[in-house]
Simulated assay, not measured.
Amino acid sequence: MNESLVSKYKDIVTSRGLTYHYLSLPAVGDKPTLLFVHGFPSISYDWYHQINYFSERGFGVVAPDMLGYGGTSKPTDVSLFLHTAVAQDLLDILDAEKVQKAVAVGHDWGAPIISVLSMKHSDRFLGFAWVVVAYQIYSPVPPIDVILEMQTKTYGRPLMGYWKFFGQESASAIIEKNLESLISVLYPDDPDNWLTLMNQPGEIQAFIENGKTTKRASYLTDEHHSRLLESLKQSGLTSALNWYQCMLKGVNSRIMEEMSEEDQFIRKPAFFAVARKDHVCVYDYAVPLMKKYATGGLKMVEFQGGHWVHLEEPEMFNRELEGWIGNTLQQSC
């Protein structure tokens, strides 16, 4: 990220008393503002390719450190990670910046949050962009072993074996002793490493407990790696892992009860960047889901890499996202 942008960060106490640290850059002329929502285990810096690209072209940017990360509050109370409440936190930020309508872009755990924004606050947005992780339809979450068994029957392998580790109370302490192990797993040079380390139960825990590392992806630059590592050292993982705990403990299981049938569909234009080699957020699940629910129009772009397409192929990602935004705004006029 351009170092001159560091001074553009602000802090806000949201309506529920939580502090958010966020980057805010005003739009120029009639350009829209983009709300970038990151996931695990990132910080707002994760969007630096997009922040530089779009701000240089006059787009407004709002990029918060999400709950549990960076300069934002790090609560240990899992109930505070209720996705509808987190979505309201983001609206509080947009209100503070006097942004009436934005384009929301979410990756990883950011994707469910923009799903909630689509369901409950569609009128505040021009469109929604899901990065790798598809639109989230909420329902009671069965025990993780049941989920893994269902995935094995459907896809020939479990997909979320790592959730068994991330859901343990001891996971944060284990990871904090071996942060480089976690980073090398999540940002691997070979995305096929996820077929074992992420998909298969027990694999990531054994890997991290033993302090192992695999070759780090080249797209995770030394600068980015340094910022990520320092953030994780300062923040720890206890709060951040509540993004998993809040699902496993049913915090979000009743969200759909608040939605009408109409609200369950994406009524605004949707963009979906799907990754062929994301072995957790798999193509065969994500694409039919997006096609079913994106009734307001869908632009889908395929990437050949893994989970971090906005880092791995930023030029293509930025170009496609900008083109979709332009077409979306033209159609809405």
Rank of each mutant, 00 (worst) to 15 (best):
S7G: 11
T19M: 04
H21F: 06
H21C: 09
P32L: 08
H38K: 14
F40W: 01
P41F: 00
I43C: 15
N52Q: 09
Y53E: 03
G60P: 07
L67Y: 12
G70P: 13
G70Q: 14
S73Y: 12
H83P: 14
D95N: 15
K101I: 11
H107N: 03
A111E: 12
Y135I: 09
S139Y: 03
D145Y: 02
Y162G: 07
W163E: 09
S170Q: 10
E176Y: 07
I183N: 10
I183Y: 12
S184H: 10
P188D: 06
D189L: 15
L197R: 07
Q200I: 01
F207N: 13
G211W: 08
T213N: 07
S218E: 08
E223C: 10
R227I: 15
R227Y: 15
A240W: 00
A240S: 03
W243V: 05
M256S: 11
E257K: 09
M259P: 01
S260D: 10
F272R: 06
F272G: 02
V274H: 01
V274N: 04
V287L: 09
M290P: 04
M300H: 04
V301L: 07
F303G: 04
G305R: 00
V309L: 11
E313V: 03
N318L: 13
R319F: 12
I325L: 14
N327M: 05
N327T: 00
L329S: 03
